[in-house]
Write a protein that binds this DNA or RNA. Structure first.
Lengths: 216, 216
DNA sequence: TGTACATCAGTGAACGCGCGTTCACTGATGTAC
DNA sequence: TGTACATCAGTGAACGCGCGTTCACTGATGTAC
């Protein structure tokens, strides 16, 4: 069965590396990391499996490329959400607003692209920081750090609570996405899900806020 | 190569279902859900792969048995931690103590038995509630609910914050375990890890506590 | 401007692997009479 | 108490599958002269 490779017999594809990554990404989008299969990606591009080895060391490198892409998409989703809500004058209030936006972007991405989300966090052969940048170098992570710093500057967050706050906040949001998406809580009706998400975001705010003598 | 099946030729094993589950559990313990392979479990018990089909419908049922066991072990770890710390007289304080114990039991189990923990939450073929009991019927979940109710009774938690609190708390602790264990944060040095866990638990307490006019 | 040739980017067939599962079977067990 | 026989719990060989990967190759491209 001759695959329907585009038009005039292009023996040299010209951009095979990208085409394969794209195909692999589509597989991941549909079926998660398990669905990223080198042979299938080649099949979809209309190329022999061997050809992939001109551009990737093997399956591991291919899936790492997808992973990288998925992480980029997640970051983009967060940044979009960040830019969506208008800034508010009060500095503390604006920090909370940005915090909520980052969290919302995270879980919304998880739900709109479950396959990519799962791929972004799937185990890969090589250790995480060898795979590329470490999480802390990532833009959303830095935005989160900034938000936390702002909360400190404004007096809403004390130094003890500031410590490791990135990871703790991340954990809440990540755990929420995982439990709702693939954990024992999938199948939760959509409205309940959204209520939980809203509650979780408020919970994060409360957990970071240092007790005050008077509640505003 | 004749497998070393125990002593006198026991053609009938007598307890093969349990033996296979145990072998499969050991595989999961070592290598996580991916390592649960029907043929290998049979091999370790010293029995032909076909024999397994007398006791399990197939691979799916075998891994579900392991999953069930892993969840039971997780629950046990939490209950042990719960019983470890002595009760304190103040009711609110005791609720916080129990809350911390449940969370600590959760992440400690994840770290002491990473393979089982991963298996407990791996995707299985059949939908979660068909696999057996739903999460809410589980003892630790009920303990958590009780703790939250106590916090309400004591005035530390208002009704708005009470809603969905189980899931939110669970998310934080689960996300923490996942990120530290298999996520981008594995390889975190142990002491940093423990500091993060401690911080997360305090964060949960703060996130649940309703603001007071005076801080105790 | 044309040609020789190195290099690049593909092909196609095949390998070995180990899995889950099925088939027809046989050895052991226990129950009815 | 002994024997016939149904049932149960195993065996062993084989199936098909699809994967990742390697091999020797060939068609296309571009550069030197």
């Amino acid at each position: 069965v001759t695959p329907p490779r585009s038009e005039r017999g292009a023996y040299h594809h010209g951009d095979l590396a990208n085409a394969l990554t794209k195909a692999a990404t589509d597989l991941a989008r549909t079926g998660g990391p398990e669905a990223v299969v080198l042979r299938e990606a080649a099949r979809q591009v209309g190329v022999s499996p061997t050809a992939a080895y001109r551009h990737f060391a093997g399956h591991g490198e291919l899936i790492d490329a997808v992973k990288q892409y998925a992480l980029t998409r997640l970051a983009a989703a967060m940044e979009i959400e960040l830019a969506a809500a208008p800034a508010v004058p009060d500095r503390a209030e604006d920090a909370y607003r940005r915090l909520a936006a980052l969290g919302l972007g995270y879980v919304r991405f998880a739900f709109s692209e479950p396959g990519l989300f799962r791929t972004a966090f799937c185990r890969s052969e090589k250790p995480p920081e060898a795979a590329g940048i470490t999480a802390a170098d990532t833009r959303p992570y830095q935005f989160l750090s900034e938000v936390l710093d702002d909360l400190v500057a404004v007096g809403a967050l004390d130094e003890v609570r500031r410590e490791h706050a990135e990871l703790v906040v991340w954990s809440t949001v990540h755990g929420l996405a995982v439990l709702l998406l693939e954990g024992p809580l999938r199948q939760l009706p959509e409205e309940a899900r959204e209520a939980v998400v809203a509650r979780a975001i408020a919970f994060v705010r409360d957990g970071l806020t240092v007790p005050r003598t008077m509640q505003s």
